Amino acid sequence: MELLLLAIIALCSGIVGALVGLGGGVILIPATLFFGLEIGLFPDITPQRVVGLSVVMMIFTGLASTLSYVKTKQIDFKSGFIFFIGSIPGAMLGAYLNKNLDLPSFNLYFGILLIVLSTLLLVRDRLKPIHWFVNHGMKRHFIDKNGIEHEYGYPIWFGIIFTFFVGIISGVFGIGGGSLIVPAMVLLFLFPPHVAVATSMFLVFLTSLVNSASHIYLGNVPWGYTIPVIIGAYVGAKLGAALNKRLNSKTVVILLQVVMFLMGVRSILEGLFNK
């Protein structure tokens, strides 16, 4: 029963993760902590072990999503590899820092992070486009299914430095970095939302390989839970990527914002009142 529940949680994580570019940890981590510690189904779960489980899951979420997005040519592979360069040392450092967090602190900081990010997306349409990064960096172009050409870009040095910090957050909280990198792509670098999500999932796949290696080394992966999570996440990511193709860009951004806000509020309440 417990393993079936984990598979269902991972399925939902995969769907949401691939749909909005989060990687799925934003669903898996709070849900597993809730059922594991509050309900008592997984009493051996800790913040460190659930993060280890999440980063292993995201290897397969990222892989399934990447394979789906390759077919629609929405992934900016060049940007993905550039961002990966900065993410490698950041993910390793974040995995090391994670071991110092207790459960209330983890929930509190995790929730604050998600609230900040969802707020950025909420005011996105009211913000003036920031063209500095595009005008002073490497320019990229994408032609969408309607034949409209989009120009976006960023200075390579800034992309590497930024993703170093994204990697730290990913290593600490096990959320794949997508919740940071997608808003940055959309708000700062002017990525079309669908390209941002697809490229984020490619980056999630790459960084999760490094992240998993770090957490395996630290002994944070609960291997008995990995099989149902991997299967559920892989299937969910396929479904989420397919659904992403059917939605317009504005819908994708709204979904991203709502998911992060709701999970952020819950996580903050857990951190404040369950000590």
Rank of each mutant, 00 (worst) to 15 (best):
H136L: 07
H141K: 15
H136P: 08
M201K: 08
F165R: 07
H131M: 14
W223C: 00
G171F: 02
G174W: 01
R246Q: 15
L190I: 09
L239Q: 04
G159N: 02
T226K: 03
G159K: 02
V235I: 15
L188K: 01
S212H: 10
P192F: 10
N135A: 06
H215L: 08
I130V: 14
T163I: 02
N248K: 11
V134R: 13
Y154C: 11
I160A: 01
L180S: 14
G159Q: 00
W132A: 08
I148Q: 11
G176P: 02
H141P: 00
A241E: 07
E149S: 14
Y234I: 04
L243V: 11
F162N: 01
Y225I: 07
I168H: 01
I156R: 06
M201R: 08
R140M: 15
G159C: 02
K145G: 15
N220T: 03
M138C: 05
G147I: 05
V182K: 01
F164M: 10
D144Y: 10
V204A: 13
G176C: 05
K145P: 01
F133I: 07
I169Q: 05
K245C: 02
P129I: 09
T226N: 02
L188A: 03
G178V: 01
W223I: 13
R246V: 05
F191T: 04
G240R: 09
K139S: 00
I156V: 15
S212Q: 08
F173A: 04
G232D: 10
W223Y: 15
K139L: 00
L206F: 09
N248T: 07
L188V: 00
E151G: 06
I156C: 04
V204Q: 12
V186W: 00
I168K: 06
G159T: 03
G147E: 07
F133Y: 13
Y154E: 11
V197C: 08
V134H: 00
F164W: 10
H150D: 07
H194D: 08
I216L: 15
G236E: 05
F202D: 05
E149H: 06
H136S: 12
F205G: 04
I156E: 03
Y154W: 06
L180T: 12
G219P: 11
E149R: 13
G240D: 05
E149Q: 15
F133L: 14
K238Q: 14
A241T: 10
P192A: 09
F189H: 04
V204F: 11
S170W: 01
G147P: 07
W223N: 09
I148N: 09
F164T: 07
L180V: 15
G224P: 08
W132G: 02
F162W: 07
L247D: 09
V182S: 05
S212I: 12
I227M: 13
